[in-house]
Design a protein around this nucleic acid. Structure first.
Length: 580
RNA sequence: GCCUCCUUGGUUCAGUGGCAGAACGACGGUAUCGUAAACCGUAAGCGCCAGUUCGAUUCUGGCAGGGGGCUCCA
């Protein structure tokens, strides 16, 4: 079955679900019910009925019963008057009818036998056969028309496939994905934790997790340093005046953590770093010869997210940005973009991602009040980055309304274990903050020239990046990132002291080594190390200590390898240096 | 913030309107062992606050925290 046809099947299932719910819950009204990436959903106003997942078997049974009476979908075009009559008791359909009529769209109804619905079409041709393999998955709330001022409807999610096997495979995949959830693995590998006393959305990083963060951040810094970046440091709070100048105060006041001093002065925790960085640029008169100025800083930002928006490490209230700002002339933008893009390419290859989606995030011309600056300025900036992306020769897609309020962006998107898409890296062209902060340089003619800013984050939020990285590798990090790279397992307590000495020797070669000091059987110690997904495990006993070749257990492979201590250490060091 | 579900030792899970259970982990002991779980023992828990009840971990409500969505996301 091709993708279009499958979409038709899923959308038809949404109708089927609507028919079943309307029979089981008299008076319930269905709103919209589209096919989505891995299935479908259908929204309902269920009045006073409360539908929960416990009701799914009953609803699914009713769906099968109704399906038995279905033929092919019959589609007919109707006048608005007719449609209003047919859906007189459904306020949601009536609103849709008015919209369609107002836009001069034709209105169509369909009926597969015993259920009339308002719909534009795109259905299964043979519902009785093709809709068999469906399953309801979850129930959720969703605002009518996606607007939080509207009534909240009950949304039922389901999925459908062309065959029972494909459905089963999909459900199995969802189960497997749960095992890779970063919140679960973060606990198992002891990488981070949350505390009710500290508060929601505030992750605490353990020594192992911090090692992982620092290793990643060191790598980003290494790549940046080689490309002319310099480190800067700023405080985590600021006077409100800074954000009034930048425009953040008016635009994002609700998302700021506010601080009022005992004298009544207003401050805020920083939700981003750009305004602070502009003040480092602005504290000296700059010659065109000094440009670009490239500032980098890995630092925490704070945003007052609503509790319902928090999600593991993906969405938190305090997160670490590997942020950089380039202050340059217009004609330097392309080179700076490509320089950053190169870092992103190298970095994501080393962490095991070869397939980031690239999104050109543009402004929404119908919503100019969301943005700073004139339409002309935006058009020019967007054309500029579009041509850079085209020149780079990669696949990208464009998204209206996804720009930052100060300029268009190139965003890099990765998927988590169940396919949710998150933004990670970003390169942004900013034509507005330099205006607001009056950032300039003196050009060849001795005139004051307005500059532009490029914002760049490689991991974006380290917290969010790690959530993706953990799920991508299911906790089995590449050797260079693994908090423990080699686990030494002494055969018995007799060997403990010499094993510790050995560990110190390996560690002095720049390798992260741990010794299992527990007075346990070898089998148990090996098992623990395997569960911790440690890349190399070596049992140390009389043989190893006497200089015989070592038998090394390599993560993810059946057969063990035999190498002398020197050969092994050399191999490990090479792999770490090569970011393997 | 909104809809909905959930909350039992450190972790994963049983269970009950009348003394709360297991496994792993931790701790103590015995064994000193060669590649995915040695054996014995000890400590440790019903998220918080109200209500109903003779009695609430269990029922009801509120709060907090968490899950799935929605809205938002510089």
């Amino acid at each position: 079955m091709d993708q279009d046809k499958l979409q038709g099947v899923r959308h038809s299932c949404a109708h089927l679900l609507a028919a079943a719910v309307k029979q089981l819950y008299p008076g319930a009204q269905n709103a919209i019910g589209p096919a989505v990436e891995n299935g479908f959903y259908q929204d309902f106003d269920t009045l006073d009925y409360k539908i929960t997942e416990a009701d799914f078997p009953k609803i699914e049974e009713k769906m099968r019963e109704i399906l038995a009476g279905w033929q092919a979908f019959v589609i007919r075009e109707v006048t608005p008057e007719q449609a209003r009559k047919d859906f007189a008791d459904n306020p949601y359909k009536l609103q849709l009818i008015e919209d369609f009529a107002g836009q001069g769209k034709t209105i169509t109804e369909n009926n597969p036998g015993n259920f009339l619905d308002l719909c534009k079409g795109g259905h299964s041709d043979n519902p009785r056969e093709e809709l068999k393999h469906f399953k309801l998955l979850s129930v959720a709330g969703a605002y009518w028309r996606g607007d939080e001022k509207n009534r909240m409807l009950t949304r039922i999610y389901g999925t459908a496939f062309a065959s029972a096997v494909e459905l089963e495979n999909y459900l199995t995949m969802l189960e497997e994905a749960k095992k890779r959830d970063h919140r679960k693995i973060g606990k198992e590998l002891d990488l981070f934790t949350f505390s009710d006393l500290v508060g929601p959305g505030l992750a605490l990083w353990t020594p192992r997790g911090t090692l992982l963060r620092d290793t990643l951040d060191d790598f980003v810094w290494e790549l940046r340093k080689a490309r002319g970046y310099e480190r800067v440091t700023i405080p985590h709070i600021t006077s409100r005046a800074l954000y009034e100048t930048s425009g953040h105060w008016q635009k994002f006041s609700n998302d700021l953590f506010h601080i009022t001093t005992r004298e009544g002065h207003e401050f805020a925790m920083k939700p981003m770093n750009c305004p602070h960085h502009t003040q480092i640029y602005a504290h000296l008169p700059r010659s065109y010869r000094d440009l670009p100025q490239r500032y980098a800083e890995t630092t925490m930002c704070y945003r007052d997210e609503q509790t319902g928006e928090l999600h593991g490490l993906s969405r938190v209230r305090a997160f670490t940005q590997d942020d950089a700002h380039v202050f340059c002339r217009r004609n330097q933008v392309r080179d700076e973009f490509l320089r950053i893009w190169e870092i992103i390419d190298i970095f994501y290859a080393a962490v095991g991602f070869g397939d980031l989606a690239v999104r050109l995030s543009l402004h929404d011309p119908d919503n100019m009040d969301k943005y700073l600056g004139s339409p002309e300025l935006w058009a020019e900036a967007e054309e500029n980055i579009r041509s850079i992306a085209v020149g780079k020769g990669v696949k990208f897609f464009e998204a209206k309304g996804e720009a930052a309020f100060y300029g268009p962006k190139v965003d890099f998107m990765a998927k988590d274990s169940i396919g949710r898409v998150w933004q990670v890296a970003t390169i942004q062209l900013d034509i507005n903050l330099p205006e607001r902060f009056d950032l300039s340089c003196v050009n060849e003619q001795g005139e004051k020239e307005r500059i532009v800013m490029v914002h760049a984050a490689i991991m974006g939020s380290i917290e969010r990046f790690l959530s993706i990285l953990i799920e991508h590798h299911a906790g089995a990090f590449p050797l260079w990132l693994a908090p423990t790279q080699i686990q030494l397992v002494p055969v018995s307590v007799k060997h403990l002291e010499s094993t510790k000495e050995l560990a110190a020797e390996l560690a002095s070669g720049g390798v992260r080594v741990a010794v299992d000091t527990a007075d346990e059987t070898v089998g148990n110690k090996v098992r623990k190390a395997v569960q911790q997904k440690i890349p190399y495990i070596v049992v140390v006993g009389d043989k190893e200590l006497s200089g015989e070749p070592w038998t090394i257990r390599v993560r993810g492979q059946e057969e063990q390898i035999k190498l002398t201590k020197e050969e092994f250490l050399e191999k490990v060091k090479e792999e770490i240096a090569g970011k393997k």
